[in-house]
Amino acid sequence: MIFEEVKILRRAALAGTSLLIFFVGCRDLIVAPSDQNYLDGESNNINVADFEQAWDIANSVYPFFQFKHINWDSIHSVYGHLAEKANGDEMFNVLFKMFTELKDGHLEIITKGGYAVTIYLPPRLKRDVSAFDPHVVRKYFTKELKLAGDGNMDYEILPENIGYVRISAFATGDWVFDFDKILDYVAGAKGLIIDVRQNSGGHGDPVNYVVSRFLSASLTFPLEYYKGKPLPNFLVQPRGPYQYTKPVVVLINGVSFSATELFATMMSQLPNVTLVGDTTGGGGGNQGIYSLPSGRQIRISNADFRRYDNQPIEWNGVPPDIVVMQSAEDLKNGHDLQLERAIALLK
C-alpha cells in the first residue's frame, strides 16, 4: 500500500514538474517581448529612430535655442550615443535627459496610452508649489465661497466689500461663460481681486474671454513668434454689456504659468489693474504634440510668446507691480500675505 502511494507521489511529482516547466515557459511565451524593437529599413533600432525623430522635431520647431544659448547639434552627438546603447524603455530616460537640457516647463514625454510626464519644473514654479492654500483663503471670508464654471472658479465678496474670484485653470470649454455671472455678482463691490495663483495655464480663448470684460478699448494679444518670425497682430475687443473699470488686483505667483502668464501680462496693460505677488513661472511657449515611431509622443513648445516689452515670457515670467513673497510657513501660520496686501490696496 505504502509502495503504491510512493509510486503515485513520484508520478504526481513528475507530472507537477512537467506542468511547472510548461507554465513557466508559458509565462514568457504569453507575455512576449516587444516585436517593435527593430524596424525595417536603414534605421533598424526603434530607440534610435525615436531619438532621431525627437531631435529633428525639436530642431525644427523649438523657438528658444538662441535665447537659452543651447547648441542643439552638440546635444545630438552626446545623446545619440546614449540612444544607440539604450535597450527597451531605457529610451524614456535618454529622452528625459536630452529634453531636460532645454529647461522648459512645457516639455512632456507621453506614454503610448497618453500619460504625460512633465520633464522639468521651472525654479519659481517648484518653489511656490506649496505657497498657496485655498483653505487659508477661506479664512478671510464670513461666507462660504460659491463654485462656478464646472469647479474652475470660486468667488464671493469679502467682508471689506471687495469681490474675489479665483480662476484655477484656463482650460478650454464652456465653463468660462460663468465669469460674466460672477462679474455681475461682484459688480457692486469696491474692487475686485482675481486670484490666478496655482493656475498653471490652459488656452488663450478663455483668457481672452475674461480679459475682454475689463477692456475699454481693443488690446493687442501678446506677440507670438513662430520659427523666429512674429505672427500677425491679433486684437482682443471689449465684450459684454458693461466694462469693469473699478480697481482690480491680480494675484500671481511662480505656479501662474503658460496661458495664465498671458492673462497676467494682458491685465498688466490696464490702468486700473495692479499685479501683486511674485513673478510668474516663465513658460512662454505654445505646446505642440508630436508622435515618435515607437508610439511615444513628445509635447514641446513651438512658439515664443512675448511680454509687451518684447521680452520672452519663457524663463522671464511676468513680474508683479508689488512684490509680496509668500511661503508655506506663512500659510501654516494662517496668513495669506499676498491676499492681505490685495485687500489693503482695495479697502
Binding site: 512576449a32 517581448p33 524603455d89 503610448k112 497618453g114
Partner: peptide
C-alpha cells in the same frame, strides 16, 4: 516571478 506588458506605458515587457 511576474512578467508584464502594459501598452499604456510602452510595448516593452517587464
Amino acid at each position: 516571478f511576474l512578467s508584464l506588458k502594459d501598452e499604456y506605458i510602452s510595448s516593452e515587457v517587464y
